[in-house]
Simulated assay, not measured.
Amino acid sequence: MEAFTRNAPDWTKTATHAFDFCCPRCEASSREAKKVWLNRYAPVTMENYRRKWQEFYLCECEQVWWAWSNERPSFEDNHN
């Protein structure tokens, strides 16, 4: 499984920062991604000592995007 490998897969090199936690090209959710890689080996510590990390997604439309883990919408936000 690629999502938890230590080294970034080659496909992550062209990633664009998505500010709405969805594909910036077609607005597909992270759940629709063809591939996922979580950069859990380089977390950022925030002012409240909580950690966040980059999550990379390869969308069905071939756009590669990333967002911070703390920006992920809650499950309830997506299923009301």
Score class of each variant (00 low, 15 high):
Met1Phe: 12
Met1Gln: 10
Met1Thr: 12
Met1Leu: 14
Glu2Asp: 13
Glu2Lys: 09
Glu2Arg: 08
Glu2Gln: 11
Glu2Leu: 12
Glu2Val: 14
Glu2Thr: 12
Ala3Leu: 09
Ala3Asp: 07
Phe4Trp: 09
Phe4Val: 07
Thr5Pro: 04
Thr5Lys: 14
Arg6His: 10
Asn7Leu: 13
Asn7Met: 11
Ala8Cys: 05
Ala8Thr: 02
Ala8Met: 07
Pro9Asp: 00
Pro9Ile: 05
Trp11Gly: 01
Thr12Pro: 00
Thr12Gly: 01
Thr14Leu: 06
Thr14Glu: 08
Ala15Lys: 03
Thr16Trp: 02
Thr16Tyr: 01
His17Arg: 15
Ala18Val: 02
Ala18Glu: 00
Phe19Asn: 13
Asp20Met: 06
Asp20Tyr: 03
Asp20Ile: 04
Phe21Tyr: 14
Phe21Lys: 02
Arg25Pro: 00
Arg25Ser: 15
Cys26Pro: 02
Cys26Trp: 01
Glu27Ala: 15
Glu27Tyr: 14
Glu27Phe: 15
Ala28Ser: 15
Ala28Tyr: 05
Ser30Met: 11
Ser30Asn: 12
Ser30Asp: 11
Arg31Ile: 08
Arg31Cys: 08
Arg31Trp: 14
Glu32Gln: 15
Glu32Asp: 15
Glu32Tyr: 06
Ala33Cys: 06
Ala33Ile: 05
Ala33Pro: 03
Lys34Phe: 08
Lys34Cys: 12
Lys34Pro: 05
Lys34Gln: 13
Lys35Ala: 08
Lys35Arg: 15
Val36Tyr: 00
Leu38Met: 10
Leu38Glu: 07
Leu38Gln: 09
Leu38Trp: 06
Asn39Ser: 10
Asn39Leu: 05
Arg40Thr: 14
Arg40Pro: 02
Arg40Trp: 04
Arg40Asp: 06
Tyr41Cys: 04
Ala42Gly: 06
Ala42Tyr: 08
Pro43Ile: 03
Val44Asp: 13
Val44Tyr: 10
Val44Met: 11
Thr45Trp: 01
Thr45Phe: 05
Thr45Glu: 11
Met46Val: 08
Met46Thr: 13
Glu47His: 12
Glu47Asn: 13
Glu47Trp: 06
Asn48Asp: 15
Asn48Trp: 00
Arg50Gly: 08
Arg50Asn: 11
Arg50Asp: 14
Arg51Tyr: 10
Arg51His: 10
Lys52Ser: 12
Trp53Gly: 07
Trp53Thr: 08
Gln54Cys: 11
Gln54Phe: 08
Glu55Trp: 00
Phe56Met: 01
Phe56Trp: 01
Phe56His: 01
Tyr57Cys: 07
Tyr57Pro: 02
Tyr57Ala: 01
Leu58Val: 02
Leu58Arg: 04
Cys59Asp: 01
Glu60Arg: 12
Glu60Cys: 09
Cys61Trp: 04
Glu62Gln: 12
Glu62Leu: 10
Glu62Arg: 10
Val64Leu: 03
Val64Cys: 07
Trp65Leu: 03
Ala67Ile: 04
Ala67Phe: 00
Ala67Gln: 01
Ala67Val: 04
Trp68Ser: 07
Trp68Cys: 01
Trp68Gly: 02
Trp68Pro: 06
Ser69Arg: 00
Ser69Asn: 06
Ser69Met: 03
Asn70Thr: 12
Asn70Cys: 13
Asn70Val: 14
Arg72His: 06
Arg72Trp: 00
Pro73Thr: 04
Pro73Val: 03
Pro73Ala: 03
Ser74Trp: 06
Phe75Leu: 11
Asp77Ser: 15
Asp77Met: 13
Asp77Gly: 05
Asn78His: 13
His79Cys: 10
Asn80Gly: 13
Asn80Asp: 11
